[in-house]
Design a protein around this nucleic acid. Structure first.
Length: 309
DNA sequence: CACACGTCCTGGTAGC
DNA sequence: TGCTACCAGGACGTGT
């Protein structure tokens, strides 16, 4: 699943391979992939045609490409969320040949990409991802809108999303305070993108294992040091994953060149039910939680007496 | 057929 | 009591 490290891998790829390109044409093969957009797919295409991509920014799992507006400050961006299975593939058919990917949902035809690429393909099997063109609004704090953002601006649909753990403008003490004000379990809070963004099911489980904290630990009973330990662990595991190009155990995630990440080899608990905990060898346990799976080590992460599921 | 799960939306609750 | 902010859980969607 694309979480922060995977989305950052894609952002970095777009930054290097696509920024500077002009969108010549747009093909939408699946209307549902252009959700939340005035004018539908036709309006989407109209707003992109002729526009130059001037940056590649990310906050949490949201990714956007600010678009130039000659004579004005940029005020719009191509916004993308990869959902569970979305990919943005930068392609040059002269090198890699034409292809007909069964899950190709949207294709941007571009001119002038620094890589010489002609297509930016949005491929998405499970269709939880989507693209749209949205207005940019100034950030309340005047800082860049997100990681890699060339502007102190943010797409409107991202305004409610908190900064993420790789964002230099993130205030971790503030996140700890917000966590401890909540009356819920720590994993729920970590997955809530309005508290801190970028953490999904995989890295939540990995971070909690590293911090030796059970997923149901009540946030309002957590001390500041423990809350910091969890955030530090989350930042650490995501940074390591980023260094390896992300996680791709199910082959649904690949970077902009179609290459898989290697972090799946490093997962301690996620998807490891029954396997020995790398720290204490207790078999990893799988629980159903929030209509999804939760993996933890019963030895290192004992259930709290009064947890919040 | 159950399962994978990120986000949005809804209905309900807690607390002031 | 009334309001608001917060919280939990269902729906969405496709393919193995």
């Amino acid at each position: 699943m694309p979480e922060l490290p995977e989305v950052e891998t894609v952002r970095d790829g777009l930054d290097r391979l696509v920024v500077g390109a002009v969108v010549r044409d747009v093909e939408v093969f699946r209307e549902y992939s252009v959700r939340r957009h005035d004018g539908g797919p036709a309006g989407f295409a109209d707003q992109l045609r002729g526009r130059r991509v001037i940056g590649a920014a990310r906050r949490g799992k949201y990714l956007w490409l600010p678009l130039d507006e000659p004579g004005h400050e940029p005020s719009a961006a191509l916004l993308a969320h990869l959902g569970m299975s979305g990919q943005l593939l930068v392609r040059d058919p002269a090198v890699a040949g034409e292809w007909a990917h069964p899950h190709l949902r949207v294709r941007l035809h571009v001119d002038g990409a620094p890589s010489g690429a002609r297509y930016v393909d949005f491929v998405d099997q499970r269709t939880f991802g989507h693209l749209s063109v949205t207005d940019l609004a100034p950030t309340p704090d005047g800082a860049p809108g997100g990681y890699g953002s060339p502007l102190p601006a943010l797409p409107e649909p991202v305004a409610h999303i908190a900064r993420d753990l790789l964002d230099p403008a993130l205030d971790r003490d503030l996140v700890v305070a917000r966590l401890r004000r909540r009356r819920t379990g720590i994993k729920r809070a970590l997955l809530d993108q309005t508290v801190v963004s970028g953490v999904g099911n995989i890295y939540a489980d990995e971070a909690l294992w590293r911090a030796r904290v059970h997923f149901a630990r009540a946030t309002d009973a957590m001390t500041r040091p423990v809350a910091h330990r969890v955030l530090d662990a989350a930042a650490e595991v995501m940074t390591e994953a980023l260094g390896q190009g992300g996680t791709s155990f199910d082959a649904l995630y690949v970077d902009v060149n179609g290459e898989s990440g290697y972090f799946s080899r490093s997962l301690a608990v996620y998807g490891q039910a029954g396997e020995p905990c790398p720290r204490c060898a207790t078999p990893v346990r799988r629980d159903e939680f929030m209509n999804r799976s939760s993996f933890s080590c019963p030895g290192c992460q004992p259930r709290p007496r009064q947890g919040r599921w």
